[in-house]
Write a protein that binds this DNA or RNA. Structure first.
Lengths: 241, 241
DNA sequence: TTCCTGCATTGATTTAAATCAATCGCCCCC
DNA sequence: GGGGGCGATTGATTTAAATCAATGCAGGAA
């Protein structure tokens, strides 16, 4: 809801439209429309026809794959400015589920594809975003394939902490505080674990002082480099951003 | 080696240049150069400065990540026509290792980037290829996160069989025959397993008649749908291509 | 031929994580 | 205030895969 001018859009400079000039933005403005969904709602079912693409304006959603017997693996975590859908593809390849209430800025696929063909700025930006996603997916593959349960949890905490710090422009000094956007079960789907293992390893990291918990969701990281060590990452990769 | 005209290039219609018109191709022709590497050679070290990008012309290479303690995960399998390197990035993010002798068609990064800015056909094709890679990476995440060792092996066999069938235009009828391009250890790095587990599960699939082996590398799949079932995939996804 | 050497297989044992199961704590609603 | 329900925690046990350890096998060199 809350439709607005592109000029004052919160994701103006990070979404697929980031590179657009004001005249290009005006064209997009004409074909865009907003949709909002409630927490828990499935925006898109895998295999269904997809007649639109769009950007997450606010809220969080997940991209998941499900096997016939019900095993599920999260394959993407969609944050504000992330793009949903693939130009040139007719049916959705993954389930998209809202984790919080969410607002999307949508375009019907056909007009968007035409616009993309005429506007290199959009295609350029989409390429850049897709390359970033591919890097993230490959990082994630290392986590899934080779890390222990404890390292997986620490890695996830580090990813969320890092993202939170960039979004909210917190300095890199001092303890980091953030809220987990995911339930234990969603964390398990993210990491290829069971929710019991997630719970145990979160408790273990807490017991060992790597993280502090306030309630189930609010996390404090007193020493980010310590967290990175636990994640099995290069300890000198402590740069936020 | 064996430099040639783009017009008679084996990957002309599938690589990053696929969409180029003959005049664009001529420009690429002027800035391209070939490099060849021997099996086992590391083409690129993670973290090293990357001053070129390029396409695999022939042969196979792997993209791998390594943790400090030596654990490694393959994050990409590079086949003829696949693109290596990321425009806009200065240093390599992954190790690239030749699995067979390999020939690359290279471009210095700077001229390629300039060319890309002027030639939408290249950027378009690169976007398409990157989106395909992202899909493959997400498929792979499901394999790594949720499949059993047996399912992982069956999934890998299915991927290679499918690829081989498209490359060599074998019909979908009858038993499929192909060569494994990877050692047991490389398969383990691909699937997040140990080489012993790979060996055991290959033997088990053979014992159960899902695959037949001639030597260590040559595989026959008598019933592709059976293999897909073992991989935990939709059994109706049996379409090759 | 015989001896390497590098991959691969197979076996015995350990172990990390899954599974099965009970309980807790919090919020909401009646 | 007393359920009911959902997410989370914790415990006991099982199990799939890792680890540790021999052995096999094919190809190349001496």
């Amino acid at each position: 809801m809350i439709p607005h001018e592109c000029g004052e859009c919160p994701i103006r400079h990070r979404a697929v439209c980031a590179r657009c000039e004001s005249d290009e933005l005006e064209l997009l403005d004409q074909i865009k429309y907003y949709r909002s969904y409630e927490s828990g709602q499935t925006l898109i079912w895998s295999g269904d026809p997809m007649d639109f693409v769009g950007s997450v304006v606010s809220g969080i959603a997940t991209l998941t794959q499900t096997m016939e017997d019900g095993r599920t693996q999260m394959v993407g975590l969609l944050l504000p400015s992330d793009f949903v859908g693939r130009p040139g593809r007719d049916s959705a390849a993954y389930d998209v589920v809202a984790v919080t209430d969410i607002v999307m800025c949508c375009f019907r696929k056909k007009p968007f594809e035409e616009m993309m063909a005429r506007t290199p700025h959009i295609a350029q930006r989409l390429l850049e975003m897709t390359l970033d996603e591919l890097d993230a997916a490959r990082e994630w593959m290392l986590v899934l394939g080779r890390k222990t349960a404890r390292e997986k949890i620490a890695s996830l905490m580090a990813i969320i902490a890092r993202r939170d710090a960039t979004l909210n422009k917190n300095g890199t000094r001092g303890p980091l505080v953030f809220d987990l956007p995911l339930t234990r079960e969603a964390m398990a789907d993210y990491l290829g674990l069971t929710l019991e293992t997630v719970s145990r390893q979160v408790s273990a990291l807490k017991k060992d002082g790597v993280i502090e918990l306030e309630g189930k969701r609010r996390v404090t990281v007193p020493d980010f480099n310590r967290l990175l060590e636990e994640a099995g990452d290069d300890s000198d990769g402590g740069m936020l951003i």
